[in-house]
């Protein structure tokens, strides 16, 4: 697999598109830091670091990974260069896993660039972290796993869908639907169980009272929606980069137990394992032209 990985990295290093993405991703944290420092109430360092893993409901990193994966690996199908690998006796499992590993290296590599610039420029400008060290570490771990999960999903799509255009469309749909689903699930989770309304008391005075919200979903529905939000990379990406980090808020964005860090990590690992297993099974059986 090492030889395949070296060959992949050589090819990618020759790709102009790849270097354009690297340049854009390098500019991204610089622009954030420079813009924020000029605002009246700049974001915290916590928030800036979190933008490495998502831009609230817009899963930017997912989009970047989908585009890169599509551009870099669809070429193998359209040029026919995948044939060169199979013909010389490289197993399909190795080819698949190497492409996945390559995509993970690229996505984590871009993330590392962001982190380096964050520490070099962002943090000096925006100040120290407001969250605890363990929270920051969990955010980096979960965020990195989200990027890996995105890489695994996009590799599955590109390696099993032989039509480059179709794979690009499917990738776009998966990301969009994932983001919309996460948004909807989060909306349900955030419906309050009690609402405050105006009412008259026994003396005829108008007062604020709290009454049960008839439209609130049951606890079971909320738990399910929270599970889906925790499971989906777009949901995790949203949670990690949510507004809860801004302006020195705590990480306790839901104010109901905080983020499920270790569960989210496990879900991401599960997604990586499941998509890779399914991807290898399909790729092994696919006819290559």
């Amino acid at each position: 697999m090492i030889k395949l990985l070296r060959a992949n990295l050589l090819r990618i290093s020759k790709s102009v598109t790849f270097w354009i993405f690297v340049a854009l991703y390098t500019l991204y944290p610089i622009i954030i830091a420079l813009i924020e420092i000029q605002t009246y109430e700049p974001i915290t360092s916590d928030k800036m670091l979190s933008l490495n893993y998502g831009v609230e409901f817009f899963p930017m990193q997912g989009v970047i990974i989908a585009l890169l994966c599509s551009i870099l690996f669809n070429a193998d199908f359209s040029n026919g260069t995948l044939r060169n690998k199979v013909i010389i006796g490289l197993s399909r499992s190795k080819i698949y896993l190497t492409n996945l590993l390559t995509m993970i290296i690229i996505s984590l590599g871009l993330s590392v660039i962001y982190i380096i610039i964050f520490f070099a420029l962002g943090m000096p400008l925006l100040g120290k972290f407001t969250s605890s060290a363990s929270t920051i570490i969990w955010m980096i771990v979960d965020g990195s796993l989200v990027l890996m999960a995105y890489s695994a999903i996009m590799t599955l799509i590109v390696m099993t869908c032989k039509n480059p255009i179709a794979s690009l469309i499917i990738s776009a749909l998966v990301i969009t639907l994932g983001a919309l689903l996460s948004y909807y699930m989060d909306y349900i989770v955030s419906i309050p169980e009690v609402i405050t309304t105006l009412s008259e008391n026994q003396f005829g005075e108008t007062i604020w009272v709290q009454i049960p919200n008839e439209n609130a979903p049951s606890q079971a529905v909320k738990a399910f929606c929270r599970f889906v939000t925790d499971l989906l990379p777009s949901g995790q990406s949203f949670q990690l980069s949510s507004p809860g980090y801004t302006h020195g808020w705590t990480m306790d964005m839901y104010s109901r137990g905080g983020l499920h860090y270790w569960q989210m990590a496990l879900y991401s690992l599960g997604i990586i394992g499941a998509t890779s297993g399914i991807g290898i099974l399909i790729f092994k059986k696919n006819n290559i032209k």
Binding site: R11, K14, S15, V16, A75, N79, G80, T81, L82, R83, N84, I87, I88, G89, K289
Partner: peptide, 13 residues
């Protein structure tokens, strides 16, 4: 074994 199937498989860039 070596092979060219249909068209040469090359990286154009």
């Amino acid at each position: 074994m070596g092979a060219i199937v249909e068209s040469p498989a090359l990286y154009g860039l």
